[in-house]
């Protein structure tokens, strides 16, 4: 449980960090909260030649509101977001998702952007970014670009970022007045990796018809999966519609098999969670208990 030898870099500015990333090539890992990386280093599963510690970059430790999004810097802790009434009210899904991530102790170190960069298909924050249709801002010595959630996650634990690129900010779209959000997962114990997770954002117009519906699945495949919902727009969220979507979620996922849960069981969980979550939204609003 002692890591192999590595070089350690602690840049003082973002430019220094980007220069270092550029020079170190692809055998460097960025250290933010370290809640996934450090155990892997200690178990020697990951043996990068270098660690680039971004914790001294004060400019990344900011939460701002801009262009309809909550902008969360790369060193902002999950715990900081969890304790920020503004963040929770502007992105209400955070209030539901954050408490499910690990434990208080891990959230006090773990970062939102770090979780996105880690791209664990069972993790809560990639699912949250996906269902909200958020994005990340990425910097390198070559410039900056914005990558939408749908383009960020490439495969299991793999993003579409180049080795010299750093996620500097995550953009979480702000809540809209009529839109309602839900996040549910099934884990064996609180804080465990979810066997299945489902998140959705639903908006019904005055006549009760669906004007927006995003439904995303976690732990269900290579990356967070969006369920096809376009054909539901303009229809009512009836029991039959819920059943259709639950079946779609069930059929559309390709979850892993391991000793905790078979793929079949995980698919079943995806279906059950989807069905229960959407059924709650199908109830008249006044009956909803958050």
């Amino acid at each position: 449980m002692k890591p192999a030898r590595f070089d350690y870099y602690l840049p003082a500015t973002l430019d220094e960090a980007l220069d270092a990333l550029h020079e170190l090539g692809d055998d460097v890992k960025v250290l933010a909260g370290g809640q996934s990386l450090v155990p892997m280093l200690n178990m020697r599963l990951a043996q990068p030649a270098a660690l680039l510690d971004i914790n001294a970059l004060r400019e990344l430790d900011t939460i701002t509101r801009e262009n309809g999004a909550l902008r969360v810097g790369a060193t902002v802790r999950q715990g900081t977001l969890e304790r920020s009434p503004e963040a929770l009210s502007e992105v209400p899904l955070l209030a539901q998702a954050l408490p499910l991530i690990g434990h208080w102790q891990t959230r006090n170190r773990g970062t939102l952007c770090g979780s996105l960069a880690h791209a664990d298909p069972s993790a809560e924050l990639p699912l949250l970014l996906t269902v909200l249709g958020g994005s990340v801002e990425v910097r390198s010595t070559r410039g900056s670009r914005t990558v939408a959630a749908g383009d960020l996650f490439a495969s299991y634990f793999t993003t579409a970022l180049e080795p010299d690129e750093l996620i500097v900010t995550a953009n979480l779209p702000l809540a809209r007045p009529r839109r309602r959000y839900a996040f549910q997962e099934f884990a064996q114990r609180h804080g465990d990796f979810a066997l299945a997770a489902v998140a959705c954002a639903v908006e019904l117009d005055e006549s009760g018809r669906i004007s927006h519906l995003a439904l995303a699945l976690g732990g269900a495949g290579e990356m967070p999966l969006l369920v096809e919902t376009a054909d539901m727009l303009g229809t009512e969220l009836t029991a039959a519609a819920v059943a259709t979507l639950a079946e779609r979620a069930w059929a559309g996922c390709d979850p892993p098999n391991d000793h905790h849960a078979s793929a079949a069981f995980r698919r079943q969980l995806v279906r059950t969670l989807t069905s229960r979550m959407l059924t709650a939204f199908a109830q008249p609003q006044e009956q909803l208990v958050r």
């Binding site: 996934s36 990386l37 599963l45 990951a46 043996q47 880690h118 791209a119 299991y156 634990f157 793999t158």
Partner: peptide, 8 residues
């Protein structure tokens, strides 16, 4: 071989 940060 590996996945994500894990390599061997």
């Amino acid at each position: 071989a590996g996945v994500g940060p894990i390599k061997g």
